[in-house]
Computed example of a mutant assay.
Amino acid sequence: MIINDKRIRIIIGHYGSGKSEFAINYVTKLRKEVKGKVALSDLDVVNVYFRTREKKDLLKSLDILPIDSSIDAPTLDLPAVSAQVATPMNDESYDYVIDVGGDNVGARVVGRFNHLIKENDYDMFCVVNANREQTQTADKVIDHIRAIEKSSGLKVTGLINNTHLIRSTTVEDVLRGQELVQEVSKLCNIPVKYVACLENLVPELPKDLEGEIFPIKLYMREAWM
């Protein structure tokens, strides 16, 4: 259950992993399950596509505080981060989700604030898509995790299998990704937290998968994409 995750949830993942899609699905589900304040920060100042900040109006309509670049230019990626990012870190009345850039350079942004994040107050989840060249093997996933940890000064606490081909995703894709994250889990002693997939695939998945099945809606891609 996402309400049992730590108060600050940091979402990392390589380009094309579906990190931002997972983050916005996660925060909208979280909003339904908690009564207090909820915020989502978009700290991805690296990738110019499919950023959570482009869904600010949706987030506001759901009573979720969106926090992004301090420059009001949603179609541009500029290396400026609002000081508001720190507010939910210090204010324990918030449940907080942070969407971090897709590589160790992007992770340096959250590293600027790691002195505000208590060890027992955060989870950092690594989103893995086994269909991406950079994360097709356990060694590559582990290299990615180690680079993010070094840059951010924080530790990955959970793995998310989000192996997909967008709307062409099959059950076989999900299960192949599951084998990969389970291998990484064993090698690194990091638990598999979630198995993310499109809602229509959920009934076809085995019920005994390691990790909680997490149905995904495509918020970040319009119907024509």
Rank of each mutant, 00 (worst) to 15 (best):
L180H: 02
A83Q: 02
G18A: 12
L205C: 13
I64N: 04
N162R: 07
Q178L: 12
E210K: 09
L201W: 01
D57C: 05
P74L: 10
P203V: 15
R53A: 15
P88V: 03
L175A: 04
V192D: 08
K118Q: 13
F50Q: 01
V181M: 03
V81M: 08
I3A: 07
N47G: 14
L218N: 11
I12R: 11
V97R: 10
E133Q: 07
R221C: 13
I142K: 11
I12T: 15
K60V: 11
Y96D: 00
G101K: 02
I117E: 11
V110Y: 01
H164Y: 04
D173T: 06
E204D: 15
L40E: 00
L65G: 00
E199D: 13
E133T: 07
A107R: 05
L76C: 09
C197H: 10
L218K: 12
L209P: 02
S82N: 09
R132A: 11
V192R: 07
I67E: 12
S82R: 06
I64T: 01
N120S: 10
S152T: 03
R112A: 14
I64G: 06
G211S: 13
N129D: 11
R51A: 13
S70E: 13
V48Y: 10
R146L: 15
G177S: 07
L59S: 09
G13V: 10
E222R: 13
T163M: 09
F125R: 11
A138T: 12
P74H: 08
